[in-house]
Nucleic acid binder design. Structure first.
Length: 376
RNA sequence: GGGGGGAUUCCCGAGUGGCCAAAGGGAGCAGACUGUAAAUCUGUUGCGCAAUGCUUCGGAAGUUCGAAUCUUCCUCCCCCCA
């Protein structure tokens, strides 16, 4: 396939008859990415606790970086001098950079928003920095990711209809400005906002779609809203995004979330859960999530997940990993992160196979029956 | 042999008449985590379902309405001088 950014980066290779799921490929300069895909989050030019070799070994072709964090440290100019983020971090796969829109939400106490953009106070040294759509495009261009995200405002949950409307309007204006100033040879994705309001979501989905980005994202979820709200938002929004372009649900989610939203027609996901939970001692297993630090694992000399064939489960026991946590050893975070990312990859592989054989709903039921069996 | 200091709940360590089941930290136990200010954060930790309940501050005996806190004796530990 001839790659001509910014259009035509996506091809659909199979569609599900029973659901809205599809199999596809996203073409980027550094990798062809099979979808549905889960992208590990590597905010600061590292997927915490993993080496790039391990990410390859785990089968990841694309990871996230964060514009705001990398701009503050080490600085986008330095990354440019290093000949881009790929070279800087020695990652041969694709990279998607988030724009800093999420930091508008998460660094609530450290920023101020107006029409021009956002003024952030650095959490590192307190200095002030201004992000405008044009500035973000410049920074993302310097960082050099394969896919770059438009600068958006992610309103907190809950926000009033009035405020959400204003934030969504700003996001729309900024999307237009991002498109106008986007660096060449990058796939710029637009982001739908609209909070938990159906009318705003529909308006935003239609507006962002009309800008004809090579891919479209749904933002403003996984900000603390109830699961039901998240489902509503995806249900309202997804069908309005062009089917022939990749759909990216930002910040989601749990393994079950991913299955559910693939069913809705989402192609791309990213989430800190497998890595953060891993560092905090929470491990995914076929039979539910466990806290490996619990006393009941002290004498458990079996693998974390009996049905997992990852390098960690083949070699190490629950008791050993628990010990590493209790002793505050750095290997604990590494083993757990590796295992959790492998778990996500297993789920994604099963999802793809199930789409190909049109048995995604059956897979969902099977996954759920085992996954919740451990919790009862 | 003489002088001085000390012993507190699993550990370290505050507390010097009632507001003390006793600060704070550690360790333990449990929970949370969804475009990462996170190897972070929260709760809990004498017994008891609870009570104006019971047991606890090296041991014993006192003083007092009331003692971890005051007195006497005992045991053990540390420092200094011989």
């Amino acid at each position: 396939m001839n790659i001509e950014y910014p259009q035509n980066i996506f091809e659909i290779t199979a569609t599900s008859k029973e659901t809205s799921a599809r199999l596809g490929k996203v073409h980027t300069p550094h990798a062809v990415i099979d979808t549905p895909v889960f992208m590990p989050v590597g905010t600061q030019a590292t997927v915490k606790a993993m080496t790039q070799e391990e990410l390859c070994e785990l089968g990841f072709k694309i990871i996230l970086g964060n514009t705001y964090h990398l701009y503050l440290r080490p600085g986008h100019e330095l990354i440019k001098r290093a000949d881009g983020l790929h070279k800087f971090m020695s990652w041969d796969g694709a990279i998607l950079t988030d724009s800093g829109g999420y930091q508008v939400f998460s660094l609530n106490d450290l920023r101020r928003i107006d029409e021009a953009g956002v003024t952030f106070k650095s959490y590192i040294d307190g200095s002030s920095h201004e992000f405008s759509p044009e500035r973000v495009m410049e920074i993302e261009g310097a960082i050099g990711a394969d896919i770059i995200m438009a600068f958006d405002e992610c309103p907190p949950y809950p926000s009033t209809h009035q405020y959400t409307k204003e934030a969504t309007q700003r996001t729309h204006d900024w999307a237009v400005r991002c498109k106008a100033s986007a660096p060449a040879n990058r796939a710029l994705f637009g982001i739908v906002q609209g909070g938990l309001y159906r009318d705003l979501r529909e308006w935003s989905a239609e507006f962002i779609s009309s800008l004809d980005f090579p891919g479209n994202a749904i933002g403003g979820v996984s900000v603390g809203e109830p699961k039901e709200e998240m489902h509503n938002i995806v249900e309202w929004t997804t069908p309005l995004l062009p089917a022939y372009k990749p759909r990216y649900l930002m910040g989601v989610g749990t393994p079950l979330d991913i299955i559910d939203f693939v069913i809705q027609g989402i192609d791309m996901f990213d989430c800190v859960l497998p890595t953060r939970l891993g560092r905090n001692g929470s491990l995914y297993t076929t039979y539910g999530r466990i806290n490996i630090k619990n006393a009941k694992y002290a004498d458990d000399f079996t693998p974390v997940d009996p049905e997992c064939d990852c390098a960690v489960c083949r070699k190490y026991t629950s008791a050993y990993i628990r010990h590493l946590y209790k002793a505050d050893e750095i290997l604990a975070a590494r083993l757990a992160t590796y295992h959790n990312l492998y778990f996500y990859q297993r789920v994604i592989r099963r999802i793809r196979a199930a789409i190909a054989s049109d048995s995604l709903l059956a897979y969902r039921a099977e996954f759920l029956s085992k996954y919740t069996a451990g919790e009862a």
